[in-house]
Write a protein that binds this DNA or RNA. Structure first.
Length: 223
DNA sequence: CCCTGATTCGC
DNA sequence: GCGAATCAGG
């Protein structure tokens, strides 16, 4: 064992899980494996998301040793979860004038829509005014791959965004603020960073780095 | 191949 | 309780 699963991490797990992030994605953010995420999620009694597979009976399981397979004929679990609500509420983000009430406490309850962080969908919360930044990193020099086995397969250059189902902070007319969410949405302590964002992006320098991370390395290279 | 989540079971 | 190994569907 290694992970401590502090309340902090458990809370984050809950949030991320509820946001519909994939187990692997959560794992990356929590610096644990997806297995750890799934295992913990189940132990926490978190709602299991539709599994891509069916697991009727568990017969042969030659993991390490002791197959022990007497007999197993279990009825189908019949646990269909058809939650195909493909709604796309899209954060309000009133573009015109907004009341000078940046306080999140006064904002309407977050939609908490199940925004799925589908890969290849770099959709950072639209900055209050300017056009979508569309972080398009990737500027690798093609050639030069002789002894380099890594070679940067740019085919999967993608970005990761927080994708909290929350509306950005009420845009102040006289200055943008970093809309990186801090805290637990829906709780009093929840707020946005509020720092001055980098031009063209909805986050400050700090959080922009967190938000726009190329996910190239998955299993390896945590942190 | 890649991805996904679920389960089992040694630790 | 934890999570690697394994499975299995898309």
């Amino acid at each position: 064992m290694a992970m401590e699963w502090t309340e902090e991490t458990i809370t984050r797990l809950r949030e991320l899980w509820q946001q519909g992030l994939s187990t692997a994605e959560i794992g990356r953010q929590l610096e644990v494996t997806k297995n750890a995420v799934v295992g913990k999620a189940h132990r926490l009694g978190l709602q299991a998301r539709p599994s891509p597979i069916r697991r009727p009976a568990a017969s042969a399981r030659p993991t390490v040793k002791a197959p022990a397979t007497p007999a197993a004929s279990v009825p189908t679990p019949a646990q269909e979860v058809t939650a195909a609500s493909v709604s796309t509420p899209v954060a309000p983000v009133a573009a015109t004038d907004v009341p000078s009430v940046p306080s999140v406490a006064t904002q309407p309850p977050q939609p908490v829509a199940e925004v799925r962080p589908v890969a290849a969908a770099p959709v950072p919360p639209a900055p209050p005014v300017v056009a979508p930044p569309v972080a398009a990193p990737r500027a690798e020099a093609p050639a030069a791959s002789a002894a380099d086995k890594e070679a940067v397969p740019a085919a999967r250059a993608e970005v990761r965004v927080p994708l909290r189902a929350v509306a950005p902070p009420a845009p102040r007319r006289s200055g943008l603020t970093c809309c990186w969410p801090l805290g637990d949405p829906g709780t009093p302590g929840f707020h946005f960073c509020g720092a001055t964002p980098v031009p063209g992006k909805p986050y400050c320098v700090e959080h922009a780095q967190l938000a726009y991370v190329k996910l190239r390395d998955r299993r390896d290279n945590v942190a």
